[in-house]
Computed example of a mutant assay.
Amino acid sequence: MVLIWLIIGAVAAGQRGYFSDSDQNCSSLATVAVTVVAGPLNYAGVNPQVECEVPQPSG
């Protein structure tokens, strides 16, 4: 059951073009992960978006 849930989420992420996005950063990778975990909820109007920044080393 969990596998089917995640497959549906992966299909939704693919339909939104998240896997072909050339800009791979913290926000885009986190958005893909949350979309996959949301599974079928994506088709019920959920559109998860994650904003994050990776800390830069001081120097």
Results as ranks from 00 to 15, higher is better:
P40V: 04
N42F: 04
A30F: 04
S28G: 03
S27L: 09
G9C: 03
N25H: 07
G59W: 09
A33H: 05
Y18P: 04
N47G: 05
P55M: 10
A13K: 02
G59M: 10
Q56A: 15
I7R: 11
T31N: 00
V2K: 09
Q56L: 14
A10K: 08
D21K: 01
S22V: 13
L3I: 11
V32Q: 00
V37T: 06
I4Y: 12
W5G: 07
L29F: 10
Q24T: 14
T31V: 09
V2S: 10
C52E: 15
V11Y: 00
G14A: 12
P57F: 06
E51C: 08
S27F: 12
V50E: 15
Q49C: 09
C52V: 11
D23S: 07
T35I: 08
W5L: 07
A33M: 07
P55Q: 14
G9Q: 04
G45W: 05
M1T: 01
V54K: 14
A13Y: 01
L29K: 02
S58R: 01
V46I: 10
T35L: 10
Y43E: 04
A38V: 04
F19I: 04
L41Q: 00
L3K: 14
L6W: 15
L6K: 11
E53K: 15
I8V: 12
Q56T: 14
Q56E: 15
V11N: 05
Y18I: 10
P48M: 02
N25P: 07
S20N: 12
V11I: 15
F19E: 02
S28D: 09
A13N: 00
Q56G: 09
Q24P: 01
V37C: 07
S20I: 09
D23N: 11
L3Q: 10
N47T: 10
S22M: 06
C52H: 07
A12S: 15
S20Q: 14
A38K: 03
L29N: 10
D23I: 01
N47E: 10
E53D: 14
V37Q: 01
L6A: 03
V32C: 04
A30C: 14
L29Y: 08
Y43W: 08
